[in-house]
């Protein structure tokens, strides 16, 4: 298993390099101009100078090499410097965002907490709802619980978050005034009162996303449990007179979790990607918001770095999913 992991990680390096080349080429070939969003009153000569100061005067392979060096050499060196206090990075230039002229990685780290809190929590809540709902729906399939569950997940799956989010705001913020419609990213939890405020401001975005996540995962859970319920070992267990609770929660659950765990693990990189629309609706300003504003402003270093980080996470969690599967199901052996 250890060798298997090492081999997979070694394979990941050429894959990631290839991905970074493709990303760089795609972004460069895509039409767009970082000065396009400036007011038209700024004349063209000045725009040209701005473009040159952003490094756009260099040919593409030089810019790619710069980015590689900045991301794989300068950034880690800087990280070491800031962690240990020894100055090993010196005057090396980090990956700089064109919009804010500040290091991309610092902004990403600044955005990480709110995304993990809101999107991550909604994923956890979604899973906690989805797994029991999926099991019960399969156990009493086509019963009233299953019918309601199917209906709710259809709604959660098909209603876009820009609709459900605004609907919740209109009901709970505008009319009832229970929850704020704007997420305060500078809020710090220091005591019980501020903790409750943090809960209050997370309720709406987390519920919108949790509904969506739960809808998706509960369908997988139900299908997987249904498959298992018809297998011979379940009939045997029941014939032995094993209590239904034990059949369901020990034998069936473990066997049917396999595919669901894969789905859940593969969804984790999506958390780091943020939830572009929900973050926009509630102004959470996490990583999703960062990505979409960078795309709109043609901030190529930011888009390149973010999408590359997502690529790393996706490859990593693919591996995690495979390893988890091996733990859950001893029949799977990696050599």
């Amino acid at each position: 298993m250890f060798h298997y992991t090492l081999r997979r990680l070694a394979f990941a390096i050429p894959t990631l390099l290839f991905i970074s080349v493709i990303l760089f080429l795609l972004l460069d070939l895509a039409p767009g101009d970082p000065t396009a969003s400036l007011p038209l009153t700024i004349p063209l000569e000045v725009r040209e100078k701005i473009r040159l100061s952003l490094g756009l005067g260099e040919p593409i392979h030089i810019r790619y090499a710069f980015w590689l060096k900045q991301f794989f050499v300068n950034e880690p060196l800087h990280l070491i410097s800031s962690l240990t206090g020894f100055d090993v990075s010196g005057e090396r230039l980090r990956v700089i965002s064109w919009q804010s002229r500040s290091p991309v990685v610092d902004i990403v780290l600044e955005r990480m907490p709110q995304t993990l809190w809101v999107v991550g929590l909604s994923y956890v809540v979604g899973i906690l709802i989805a797994v029991p709902v999926g099991i019960v729906s399969a156990w009493r399939s086509n019963g009233w619980f299953d019918q309601i569950g199917t209906f709710v997940s259809m709604v959660g799956f098909s209603v876009p978050t820009f609709f459900s989010g605004v609907l919740l705001i209109v009901i709970f913020s505008v009319h009832l005034g229970w929850f704020p419609s704007i997420y305060d990213t500078t809020h710090r939890v220091t005591d019980l009162g501020s903790f409750f405020h943090q809960i209050r401001q997370m309720v709406l975005p987390v519920s919108v996303l949790a509904l969506y996540n739960a809808a998706q995962i509960s369908r997988f859970m139900r299908a997987s449990t249904l498959d298992n319920l018809h297998l011979d070992y379940v009939r045997t267990a029941r014939a032995k007179g094993m209590p239904e609770r034990r059949v369901l929660l020990v034998h069936v659950l473990r066997n049917s979790l396999g595919p669901v765990v894969t789905v859940i693990a593969l969804g984790v990189p999506g958390i780091f990607g943020g939830a572009i629309i929900t973050e926009q609706v509630f102004k959470v300003n996490g990583l999703g918001h960062l990505l979409i504003t960078a795309i709109q402003a043609n901030d190529l270093p930011m888009v390149q770095t973010l999408t590359f980080i997502f690529a790393v996470l996706i490859i990593l969690f693919n591996l995690v999913a495979d390893l988890l599967l091996g733990i859950l199901d001893p029949r799977i052996r990696y050599g």
Binding site: I96, Q99, S100, R101, S102, E110, T185, T186, N285, H289
Partner: peptide, 28 residues
């Protein structure tokens, strides 16, 4: 070197009625 001075670009010292306590780019 203008773009490298992140601290100055995020927290300029001014004469105006307010001064920056915390600047989060593209957020608050």
């Amino acid at each position: 070197r203008a773009p490298e001075c992140t601290d100055a670009n995020f927290n300029p010292i001014g004469t105006g009625p307010f001064r920056v306590v915390e600047f989060r780019s593209n957020d608050v």
